[in-house]
Design a protein around this nucleic acid. Structure first.
Lengths: 206, 206
DNA sequence: GTCTATAAATAGATAGAC
DNA sequence: GTCTATCTATTTATAGAC
């Protein structure tokens, strides 16, 4: 023991992905670097290239892993929200915003130009999984064509909350009280109501 | 004439800002580089440092200029939308999303950590200007506390459309038909309606 | 599987000449 | 005001030793 951790336990690939998810959460894509990651794990900067062809392949694996967690969290949030499709969409949107805030991974990375060119199947699959979490409740509220448009509104609203929070815009302002994820959830509920024509809690007829 | 454009007309600072806005629109903050900018203008990579202390000061000037255009376009769009505050908010949001798509400058950059540390007054001022465009119509729809929350929903929704479009997510999908800016405008109208309780065009009524 | 060493780019920034 | 030259720091990626 005390082997110095210099040559790795045989799963450097896995360790790179796990540490990569953390690094990405801390510094964002902009600061994501193979060299930094290697240093953190105490291996040489050359070692990662035994497991990933280049920086983008490694990044794709990291994003795929993180986006998988995102899909799970959205799914879990939707499930907790019960049967009402509006609540399910709102909960999933809140989870999306919260995840983006904390982990800095969202559909921007999953579908972004940087990784799309790779044609990674797993990455594409996880992107679809995220969409499916929203599609199911959306289809309970609208016909297929309108459901896609509704999904778009849900995801853009949630993404806007998460993205602007990452960049510090929503930071100090506890605007309506509540966390960013909670405010995002409420905003998604509002956009869904405004889309399908359901009166909101603040108004609507007797 | 044919002076080679080697030593500049006396307004390298201005030229750097103008060309910087274009560069930023093309490559985003990630690719924004003083060296590239200098090369584009045909000056040495050292020349910009006679006018700006460092990369971030130059970037701040570029973002300030672009955000000024953004505020103008939002203001103009709101003015064209007439008197209805919902329409004004929606138009301003659509303009925001369109600008973000085309120029890659939004509140993420204006309030982002990268530039906030500089404490640039002009940048802060233009940020407030953008907020004011939305605050005025929001105050016609809600009391001050709720108006701030409404603004937050408007800007996050618009930002989400612009940001995901920049990253290619909304690219091919002419979901409901119409441009991203038009879809953002409709989504903002929906979130406003869902927030203030006005029934949407698809429902409500007798 | 990992390391050392190194190549090749690129960027930010400074010193001093003109 | 701008240029040439240079320094420093970083990164991605490869070659070959162990």
């Amino acid at each position: 023991m005390a082997r110095r951790a210099r040559f790795h336990h045989g799963d450097l690939a896995g360790a790179l992905v796990r540490a990569g998810v953390d690094l990405l959460a801390e510094v964002g894509v902009r600061g994501f670097s193979v060299a930094v990651l290697a240093r953190r794990l105490g291996v040489s900067t050359a070692a990662p290239y035994r497991h990933f062809a280049d920086r983008d392949r490694l990044l794709a694996a990291v994003v795929t892993a993180a986006a998988g967690e995102l899909a799970e969290q959205m799914d879990a949030a939707a499930a907790r929200a019960g049967d009402d499709p509006v609540s399910r969409l709102a909960a999933a949107g809140g989870a999306y915003a919260g995840f983006l805030t904390g982990r800095r991974v969202g559909l921007d990375l999953v579908y972004g130009a940087e990784l799309r060119a790779l044609g990674d199947r797993d990455l594409a699959a996880v992107g679809r999984r995220i969409g499916d979490v929203l599609l199911t409740p959306a289809l309970e509220l609208a016909d297929p064509a309108a459901a896609v448009s509704l999904m778009e509104r849900v995801v853009t609203t949630a993404h806007g909350y998460g993205a602007l929070d990452v960049d510090g815009f929503l930071a100090g302002a506890a605007v309506g009280g509540g966390t960013v994820a909670e405010r995002a959830e409420a905003a998604v509920a509002a956009v869904v109501r405004g889309t399908v024509g359901t009166p909101g809690p603040a108004a609507g007829g007797p």
